[in-house]
């Protein structure tokens, strides 16, 4: 068992934990964190698994960099959406509003515009 393989297994474990959280947690921010956890796990697998004759392979490192950028973009978008969703509905989960108990905030937040 080489250290890099260890990384790979750690990555798999992270994926598992993240997936569990992603499916079980209701709060949207927690879900998002769980998503990031899975992402980290996948990146670990990617760099850990790819070994050529004991030498680390540069290609996955480059790919993971790209992957991190994509993940950050996705996270940013998600945070914007969740924030705005909270402003509009007062909810932090995706559950359909059972009653109109949520505080509907005024339309003044509209200026924030669409997510970007």
């Amino acid at each position: 068992m080489t250290p890099s393989l260890l990384y790979a297994f750690a990555g798999v474990a992270l994926c598992g934990i993240g997936l569990f959280g992603f499916l079980r947690l209701q709060h949207l921010l927690r879900k998002l964190m769980a998503f990031n956890l899975i992402g980290s796990g996948v990146f670990l697998v990617m760099v850990g698994l790819a070994q050529r004759n004991g030498q680390p392979d540069p290609v996955p490192q480059a790919l993971v960099l790209t992957g991190i950028v994509v993940a950050i973009a996705a996270t940013a978008l998600a945070v914007v959406l969740i924030r705005r969703y909270y402003h509009l509905s007062g909810q932090t989960t995706l559950a359909e509003p059972a009653a109109k108990s949520a505080r509907p905030k005024a339309r003044s937040v509209n200026r924030e515009g669409a997510p970007e």
């Binding site: 790979a8 990617m46 790819a50 070994q51 996955p60």
Partner: peptide, 8 residues
């Protein structure tokens, strides 16, 4: 993840 495994 599948891609990572394939690459590995």
């Amino acid at each position: 993840l599948g891609v990572a495994l394939i690459y590995g």
